[in-house]
Nucleic acid binder design. Structure first.
Lengths: 255, 255
DNA sequence: GGCTCGAACCAATTTGCAAATGGTTTCATG
DNA sequence: CATGAAACCATTTGCAAATTGGTTCGAGCC
């Protein structure tokens, strides 16, 4: 079971000593063990041997360590915080798109039920802006504002916070490259028309239609994202290569 | 419009001077103004007079201040971070329940599509635990673990993070009182049966059924929450009063 | 040669402290 | 009694030192 057989004698001795220490419960659960330097001196072995023993224990899940913090008993605590960077590393563009496809139709439906007339007016205004923005950068800005306005109109602050979380991940990371390539002139005009349908359904209080229109819009976005990620593209030298590899190397993948 | 008329002469002078400073654009937008002590000396008035002038400007929304940080131009930046406390203050139990009703059926559906056999085994094990836990506290623990396991089985780390966010808000705040009152013996047994149906649908890969079963379960939970919040309850003195008022006073409502 | 150990260095984190800054109170003064 | 200066409080920021796991290097020892 353990790879202790591959360890040296002193490491093995350290491992036995450590197991005794842990088993006898001298250290309460979730408590920090003494620093490696102390522990090594206490057991009477070198730090290197100790560390190899600790590696085994960590692999077994009995302890966990973190640089600068220390060595702790028990399983590594789940990283349940809403650290934006951490999340950006763990997720990927397709996951984000999947979540948008689940959440935003809900928001559109709720918006159709709860939007005030002022909200609707604002949506119409934003839709105009997206339609009239010539450059892609401008479109991106107004599009983002429009989607958020729909989320606001849904009238649930927690859902709005969730939307913001997704939106920040979408914008924060280095997937910008993808988005840049994903928006071409003809697609943008299609998006504008889809926006119109969503807003029309909201203003006419047609919950089902709003939900469906938003889903169709996001499916179109998703499809164009997929196409961009999988289709080959030619760089300046004219050599074609899979862009998926490019973007993958740009993403910092967590463990 | 302004309440400058109620200010003293020196404060009024300070206000005029400050308006000039702000209007002439010597300080860029979002920039920090000099500390009050410096500014007061610069204008040649006392700090108290300056502060009263700043209060006016802050009420007008032209500046915002924060202890330890400084005084800044422009409107107070929106607190768009995922601060758990902030969110807990802005939302309320019914909103959270609404969101759970939207999100968790999705998670159940995805789980039915993507859960591994190991995941299903784990769900069954957790369902047993919830069923066999006698006291309400124990049930709460296993129930929470079960719902999270379903979210994990859905296989989307971003959705999982969203679930965790909701779950932390649900647990973090002082709504515990509500939950304690919301679980009675008979209801728990109903919940156990509903759990069984959800897990059965997941294990049989019936996406639609899983989604519906989860929605029905959460609707039951929501109903019991509503009942607890609206029904009168008798305290030790035997006096009945609306519990909604109790809980409302416990919640810290944001602006 | 291979292994161990100690030392040194690197990197991440925590801690402690001082300074800065808005918020508040106190007090002498005219 | 309002003013203004000073003092004090509370929060935030910045920085340096200490702590601690992670890594490298070289001497010494089978």
């Amino acid at each position: 079971m353990t790879n202790a057989a591959a360890l040296s004698d002193s490491s093995n001795f350290a491992l036995r000593q450590l197991r005794i220490l842990l088993d006898e419960g001298r250290f309460a659960a979730d408590q920090r063990l003494p620093p490696e330097r102390h522990l090594a001196a206490q057991i009477g072995i070198g730090r290197r041997a100790l560390r190899r023993a600790l590696e085994v224990l960590e692999a077994e899940g009995r302890i966990w360590r973190h640089q600068g913090k220390g060595t702790f008993l028990g399983p590594r605590p789940v990283h349940t915080e809403t650290g934006l960077e951490e999340l950006s590393n763990r997720t990927n563009p397709l996951e984000v798109m999947d979540v948008r496809l689940e959440i935003e139709p809900i928001l559109a439906r709720l918006a159709s039920l709860r939007a005030s007339n002022g909200d609707v007016e604002r949506l119409l205004h934003l839709a105009e802006k997206t339609a009239s923005s010539s450059d892609a950068d401008g479109y991106e800005l107004w599009d983002s504002a429009l989607h958020r306005a729909i989320a606001e109109a849904a009238g649930n602050s927690l859902l709005l916070a969730i939307f913001d979380m997704i939106d920040r991940i979408r914008q924060d990371t280095n997937w910008q490259v993808l988005r840049e390539r994903a928006r071409s002139k003809d697609r943008l005009s299609a998006y504008v028309e889809q926006h119109r349908r969503v807003i029309a359904a909201i203003s006419q209080r047609e919950a089902h239609a709003a939900e469906r229109a938003m889903r169709e819009h996001l499916e179109a976005v998703r499809e164009s994202l997929l196409r961009v990620m999988t289709s080959p593209v030619a760089d300046e030298d004219g050599r074609a290569h899979e862009t998926i590899n490019d973007t993958k190397s740009e993403l910092r993948h967590g463990t």
